[in-house]
């Protein structure tokens, strides 16, 4: 379950997840209210140095931030025409810095650690949500992703073999039906293995 995690042993990697989450929230709010270009420049330098401290490979960092850049390509010209180019540049800058900060969190924190943090954040709500059931559901879902992916792949192959390309229905119906059968079998196995104990 590596996900987008970029392995490392830096201070940032080893910091407690809840602390990182808190600092991330504060950081995003602070970046959001910066109004002057020089303030934003400082914030950008701080975030950049955090990436250096965490020794994130540049390619991994760019892969995280690039999709946002694509969105900005469309939006910045509109913004510039509507409310001036300085405002547009500041908006883009704030967004990129905040996005980089959030990406840093994801790159330095394992999925397991984040899920544990979620679990702890849910604990005060124990009256309404059963945190153990949710933990089980999370594990079950991670198990099911390859299972369903295989179903999708097989249906795609079968469709190609029969030469019925194109129709979304010819894909969606068998995928859903087979997924439901798999779910029933899994539900049966959960019962047989003592889920209700």
């Amino acid at each position: 379950m590596i996900g987008l995690y970029s392995p490392g042993r830096s201070v940032i990697h080893r910091a407690p997840t809840l602390l990182k989450l808190l600092l991330l929230s504060v950081g995003v709010v602070v970046v959001g209210v910066l109004a002057e270009p020089w303030q934003l420049a400082i914030a950008a330098l701080v975030v950049l140095s955090l990436f250096v401290i965490a020794r994130i490979p540049p390619r991994a960092a760019v892969a995280q931030i690039a999709p946002i850049l694509w969105m900005l390509v469309l939006v910045v010209p509109i913004q510039g025409l509507l409310s001036g180019w300085l405002v547009a540049a500041l908006m883009a800058g704030r967004l990129i810095v905040a996005v980089a900060l959030a990406a840093l969190f994801t790159l330095t924190t394992t999925v397991t650690a984040v899920l544990e943090a979620f679990h702890r954040l849910l604990r005060p709500f124990g009256r309404w949500v059963d945190a153990d059931r949710i933990g089980l559901l999370v594990a079950l879902t991670i198990r099911c992703i390859p299972l369903v992916t295989e179903i999708v792949t097989e249906v795609l192959e079968a469709r190609r073999a029969r030469g019925t390309r194109g129709s979304v229905m010819a894909l969606a119906v068998p995928v859903v039906v087979r997924s439901l059968y798999a779910a029933d079998a899994l539900g049966e196995a959960l019962v047989a293995r003592g889920l209700d104990d």
């Binding site: 559901l137 079950l140 992916t149 999708v152 798999a182 959960l190």
Partner: peptide, 27 residues
Amino acid sequence: RTLAARDLAHIAIFAALIAALGLPGAL
């Protein structure tokens, strides 16, 4: 508070289905 085993399996399978539909090249 309690979800039957079959409900849990339905939920997990559909969460996985949403994920599978986003995989590159799937569709």
